[in-house]
Amino acid sequence: MTQAALESPAEGGETAATSRRFLVYRGDSNDGQMVEYSVPTLEGMVVLDAMHWIQAHVDGDLAVRWNCKAAKCGSCSAEVNGTPRLMCKTRVDVIVGDIWVQPMKAFPLIKDLVTDVQWNYEVNREIPPFTPPADVPSPWRVQQQDVERLFEFRKCIECFLCQDVCHILRDKNEKARYYGPRFMVRQAYLDMHPMDVRDRTGQIKDESGIGMCNITKCCTDVCPEHIHITDNAIIPLKERVVDEYFDPLLWAARRIRGRRQKKRPSSR
């Protein structure tokens, strides 16, 4: 939708707007309510367009966080008709009836649709960074087959919709015991990286709390980048934890022959 069409929706000629009823959460952490707006819509319009129209024409103080409007910055996360979504990727014409727009429930509310996602960055700092071997100078020669499964994890845009929908964070508020799906993806990337030498299994089990996840796959369902969070990140990490802590045969093998050194590609 163009800016001109947004500014003058009634003058759209053949693409003349029809109105849709939006109910948008307005308020802060103390008090709030759903406020009704009638917004003119055009073909291809997304929910974020409607929020911009409300800001421009009705309530200039409506708080909305956004940046790219191209589903790449991960800023405009909210709950549209009860489902965590990127507002810039949610077309208005696929929704029948009223459109309810509410802030993410898992994080403290600042104002209207803006939540405080600071906790996620604090968790991120607790994860040890990428640790290459000290004795293998870069540049490294890494084969495609060694890194191809990592590309999926790099698609994460940190919208935190997976964190929002995760019931452990959302309903149980167990943020002290579980890092959440986003950071399982990050740890999967690091732990599976052929040039990362750090043993991360202990932290994945204890500090990250991977045992809290009960595989309900909601994080995968809401991911706008279609990352298979559960199947390709969380479950493989769970299996690595099983290798280390719950498999008596592997434990006995390690006792007998010692811990094997992690193999890694050689330097160029």
Binding site: Q143, Q145, D146, D191, H193, P194, D196, P236, R240, D243
Partner: peptide, 12 residues
Amino acid sequence: SLVGGGIDCYSC
């Protein structure tokens, strides 16, 4: 995971 998911370097 057992057949290959636990390996980090497939080319090694």
